[in-house]
Structure formats: structure tokens, C-alpha cells
């Protein structure tokens, strides 16, 4: 079960600012889903390997050959804030 404090921590990890109202609203919904997930506990997975990739592929590479880049204009075209060719982010501290 997720308590409000857990939700605050998860919200922080996920960088989603949660208002008090959000926390009230989300907590029961998240818990009902987690409750549903407890279904997983019933499955016997002793000795079963996890499947990370459904196709058994390996060693997919590219050659070390340049294929071109976007222009600076294209690279910055969607950035809400930029300055002198840099993307402008908020202050660090």
C-alpha cells in the first residue's frame, strides 16, 4: 500500500509536482491498481528466467561512419528557450 509519504517520494523520483489535491485523488487509485497487481504473487516463477527481449537477438551494431546531423536551426527549432545557439535551462541552484 502506498501512503501519502510514499507518493511524495515517487512524485519526486518521477519529477511530477503533486498538489495536495492530486495526492488525495491518486492515492486510492494507485492502491487499487497495486492491489490488482498482487495477482502476480500467485504465479509460481521459481527457476523462470525473465524475458527482457521477446526476440532472441544479439549483436546489432552500426559501423563507425558519420551519417550527418541536424542543422543548429533544426536542433533548436522546438526549444522553448535558447540563447546564442545554446538551449536555455533554468538555474541549477
Amino acid at each position: 500500500m502506498i501512503a501519502k509519504k510514499d507518493l511524495e517520494h515517487i512524485g519526486w523520483l518521477a519529477r511530477i509536482d503533486l498538489s495536495e489535491e492530486d495526492k488525495e485523488k491518486y492515492t486510492p487509485k494507485l492502491n487499487s491498481v497495486l492491489d490488482y497487481f498482487s495477482e502476480l504473487d500467485k504465479a509460481d516463477t521459481e527457476g523462470v528466467e525473465p524475458t527482457y527481449h521477446v526476440m532472441p537477438m544479439s549483436n546489432v551494431f552500426r559501423d563507425d561512419i558519420p551519417t550527418g546531423s541536424l542543422s543548429q536551426e533544426e536542433a533548436l527549432s522546438n526549444a522553448p528557450k535558447n540563447q546564442d545557439g545554446f538551449i536555455k535551462a533554468p538555474r541549477m541552484m
Binding site: 502476480l40 504473487d41 504465479a43 516463477t45 528466467e49 525473465p50 524475458t51 527482457y52 521477446v54
Partner: peptide, 9 residues
């Protein structure tokens, strides 16, 4: 991890 094991099953 549990979900991925079930994925195998």
C-alpha cells in the same frame, strides 16, 4: 522482475 518472469511463462 516478477512480471518479466511471467512474460516468459
Amino acid at each position: 522482475l516478477k512480471a518479466l518472469k511471467i512474460r516468459t511463462l
